[in-house]
Design a protein around this nucleic acid. Structure first.
Lengths: 208, 208
DNA sequence: ATTAGTTTGTGAAGAAATTCACAATCCTCC
DNA sequence: GGAGGATTGTGAATTTCTTCACAAACTAAT
């Protein structure tokens, strides 16, 4: 398949969230134009995005809401349950472990790890914090899909090496650094400082 | 000034974080090549990004670390303290109010608001949760710069209308919806579901 | 069955972002 | 103070992303 841009994937995700809302309201059909309006983009963009994966609409009519949302879930790989491990049992890790949005979307938090001895053995909901040194061994039997890095910046790159060794191919990174990983590993970074600085830039340069 | 792309601003923010680390280690000078290596990009990209704002380097030598990081802070508007209000006193709001990264970067959390009567009056650190209906009035005297939206998706758009009315021009949005705002208001959205779905897509389409 | 009115899917055009490539400049050392 | 080596700044080339624009395909109405 042709390489798909990250921006495209983000939009697909956005379209899906609209479709799910609309589906609950019982709307049966939607045009690219309407979808574009909701997503703050253009109808051509919507159609182009979808056309990368097939043709799901009916000319003159639009898209069937249930059908399109099913297709998008399929494209985004939301059919199966992904198994998630959280590395770092600090505040962010704790908040994430309790976050219901994971389960709702089919992401099952399977284990929590930390390097700090004093945290090991603590229980969170139904999970027990395990030493990160065991990650690779554990992964052998369990098929973890996604690792969430919620450690301090200093330890993040070390932890990532262990994640990669454990054969995990997708990382959601909350540490405020740039992770270095092999080509076949996908990283998404959530970096509050960067978002805030983006806003700061916008405020500082208004009207120039 | 020419319009600057969001991706450029993100990279500037990234460069700055490297420079700050390097500065603490006492390194005095850095080349675009080194900076590119750290940021996972190319040296040409680094130079192009910086050249949008001036010429800060010395040919044959590279960039002075303290000078460049100072310039970047200036460009990103990190010189002044920005005043932040958090709207939504739920779990995310609470976590953000306690988040030290705000203060470290010069973002001062000034107030917390919520629509839910049962939450109003609660004290968080040195702040008291106030009714969001008072936001506009409060804003008149206080010059709030940035609003953080940490409400459920359902109330987010309503809250945003109040934020806009209060004259706030920058929003950091944690609600999983697309906010609609006037042109002169900048929004950055942090959406975990979208990030997870990006990873899911990558996993589902590996090697195609 | 024909017409009028929609809306898709997609090549082609246009815009934006990235990379190339090299002259210009600076530092160091002899 | 000239030569050699390094690295910037930036037009031009390239690649990627977005928008345009229209034929094709569908519905509904008469």
């Amino acid at each position: 398949m042709k390489r798909i841009a990250e921006s495209t994937v983000r939009r697909l995700s956005l379209y899906l969230s609209f479709l799910e809302g609309i589906e609950r309201q019982g709307v049966k059909t939607i045009s690219s134009d309407e979808l574009a309006r909701l997503g703050g983009t253009t109808s051509a963009q919507v159609r182009k995005d979808l056309s990368l994966f097939g043709s799901f609409g009916k000319r003159g009519l639009g898209y069937s809401v249930p059908e399109l949302s099913h297709k998008l879930r399929e494209i985004l790989g939301l059919g199966k349950q992904w198994r998630v491990v959280i590395i770092g049992a600090g505040k962010i890790g704790a908040a994430l472990a309790r976050y219901r949005g994971f389960a709702e979307r089919g992401f099952l938090v399977t284990a929590v790890y930390d390097a700090d001895e004093t945290k090991i053995g603590k229980r969170w909901e139904s999970l027990t914090v395990r030493p990160v040194s065991e990650l690779e061994k554990d992964a052998a039997g369990q098929d973890f899909d996604i690792a969430v890095v919620a450690t301090p910046a200093e330890s993040a790159q070390t932890v990532v090496k262990q994640i990669v060794k454990a054969g995990i191919k997708a990382i959601l990174n909350f540490a405020p650094i740039q992770l270095s990983v092999p080509n076949d590993v996908t990283v998404r970074t959530v970096n509050m400082a960067m978002e805030l600085e983006g806003l700061s830039f916008a405020l500082a340069n208004r009207g120039e």
